[in-house]
Design a protein around this nucleic acid. Structure first.
Lengths: 352, 352
DNA sequence: GTGAAAGCGCTAACAT
DNA sequence: ATGTTAGCGCTTTCAC
């Protein structure tokens, strides 16, 4: 623990060359003879030398580090994005460092300064709010945001098609024959939440399904929020036969609530979520959901960042990934006494 | 994005002082008149200046950054430890940066070099295997490990009392009157898993409960592993009336399996987990578990690291936190036809 | 191919 | 109370 880490100078000394030669050899740059280069590499390995990337950055070079800020890195969406980003970054020879904001702990005035000093580029997985946007736009290194919702802003960002995803979810339920479809909202301050709600409402009116505001319950993208909202919906005198939750965490809360209230899923209640988080596939019944390719989105963020670092601005600031409905055990045609099935249930069968 | 970040020199220039004076003012060091100090602070704020902590570190000072390496930062144990660590670090004026290893992606030869170059100390949340231990022991900055299992090694580490925790879990089931208690193991390469198993076996023999190897199923601390193991246990001709899973993820897998096989919990099957992960409280029924204070453990790691950075070695290398049984809905006395209740169920009542 | 000089942003140590 | 010098580990630029 008191050991100093080996430096370039030490490697150079042992090899009997200048630091520049050692630097070139270790960075795969031309201008070093084969023999000398190999000798240097051997010595570096023996000494356990690793370049100090912050010194590299300080001296005007690249650190080959990508920074990532996230607000709650354990939430499934963020975690998956990070995993995808780490994978792609490492493959490209970059390391990745995460700066995690924790609720209730005041961060730096600028959430990116720390990473800007260290990294060559920054990925922000943050709710796309004005609070953070300013510091992102003024950054000294390329920044790209990954969000499950994208405002049409002039800022490089990656997201998914929330509106169509939500439509697919509700259409699936309608196709199955459901007519009373509840909705649990996300954080309405997020555009993803507003888009998903819009998708829900549009399908309702297109299919001429009754729009009943009591079927819309406030959620906040958390499991607990989904649980509470579902309790409300399930205690209505005419309760919904299906619930579309704005994300998988909330959908899992719905499932818990149903189990607690002894409402059988999917027989008495169908549930659809959004995200395709790993957890959603693990519960029983597994949750039908709208998949967004979170790992790919993280990987794509890295690739775009790499391009931006090379001076290539993205063709379009906003990159939208398509979503895909994943049908699992939590959805089925309605079957309780209140449901009247007719041609709608036949439609379901043809579609699937 | 092309903006350079303001530097100390700029602040000093605007204030018309030397860089040293600016540095002293910004770091709350003595030797600056009140008036000058306030002026410098004002200017720094206006310019949006933030100190470059890597330059601070490079120049021989402290970066006031704590690094944390973790192997899968989204697993509940790690995530909770990180949250606790971030909270404590920020409170102490430190920033925290996470280096996340991802399965299937080869990391640097030394997993800590990168962080050692940046941080003043490193917290490792890694399986305590020889693979990583070497680089930790040889680090250039203080390192402490947080693990759900601790080998008795001469290395600063924080863990919990897995053996007693496991005992409490199994005793709880025995007290309730269960006699056929299954166990789903963790990764047997981890000492936490071996300790929990030992606790299980010891209680079995102390209580003179039948030891039946078919009641022990291999798990790996994952939900999927718990699911598969539970399927095996639940398809035995004489299946257990209770299952103790080596952690909460596995316990949630057991719950899924039970629900899939229409085995009612807790009426026909009691389930106990380990960790008290947030998720375990959110499912239905909520899972009885052995709580280990993960956030506190993370915070404690930061505090000990801070002390070590100040030259104070921990009194004992190993810090063990106590565990606590948290009884929730997933456990109840056995009641199915196979169970014969007698004095054991009475014992349960007296104890609880 | 190889090396010397200068400097990135900052702070100890030593001035004044 | 304030400034100067030197140097952290590295890379750029410009020699040879």
């Amino acid at each position: 623990m008191k050991n100093r880490l080996p430096t370039l100078a030490e490697v150079a000394d042992v090899a009997g060359v200048s630091r520049m030669t050692a630097s070139r050899a270790l960075n795969n740059q031309p201008g070093v003879s084969r023999a000398v280069r190999e000798e240097i590499l051997r010595i570096a390995a023996k000494l356990g030398y690793t370049v100090n990337r912050t010194a590299q950055k300080l001296s005007g070079g690249k650190s080959r580090i990508i920074g990532l800020v996230a607000i709650r890195m354990q939430n499934p969406f963020t975690a998956e994005v990070i995993t995808g980003a780490v994978r792609t970054a490492r493959t490209a020879g970059y390391e990745m460092l995460v700066y995690s904001l924790v609720e209730g702990v005041e961060p730096q005035p600028s959430v990116t300064h720390l990473l800007e000093h260290i990294a060559d580029g920054v990925i922000a997985v943050l709710p796309y709010s004005g609070r953070y946007l300013k510091s992102l736009a003024a950054a000294s290194v390329p920044v790209i945001t990954v969000e499950d919702g994208i405002e049409p802003l002039d800022f490089p960002s990656i997201g998914c098609d929330n509106y169509r995803g939500a439509r697919a979810a509700v259409e699936h339920l309608a196709d199955l024959g459901h007519r009373r479809i509840g909705f649990i909202t996300g954080h309405e301050s997020l555009s993803s939440a507003r888009e998903r709600r819009r998708g829900y409402l549009d399908v309702l009116s297109e299919r001429r399904l009754p729009r009943d505001d009591s079927l819309i319950a406030e959620g906040d993208y958390t499991q607990r929020g989904g649980f509470d909202a579902a309790r409300k919906l399930l205690s209505l005198s005419r309760r919904p036969t299906a619930i579309f939750a704005a994300n998988d965490d909330a959908a899992m809360g719905v499932l818990s609530a149903a189990q607690k209230l002894q409402v059988r899923v999917p027989e008495e209640l169908s549930i659809v979520g959004f995200d395709d988080s790993p957890q959603a596939a693990q519960v029983h019944p597994a949750i039908t959901t709208v998949r967004q390719p979170m790992q790919e989105m993280g990987g794509s963020a890295v690739n775009m960042l790499l391009a931006m670092m090379a001076g290539i601005e993205p063709a379009s600031p906003v990159t939208t990934f398509p979503t895909e409905l994943v049908v699992r055990g939590s959805t089925a045609p309605p079957s309780g006494p209140p449901a009247k099935r007719s041609k709608s249930s036949r439609a379901a069968r043809t579609e699937r």
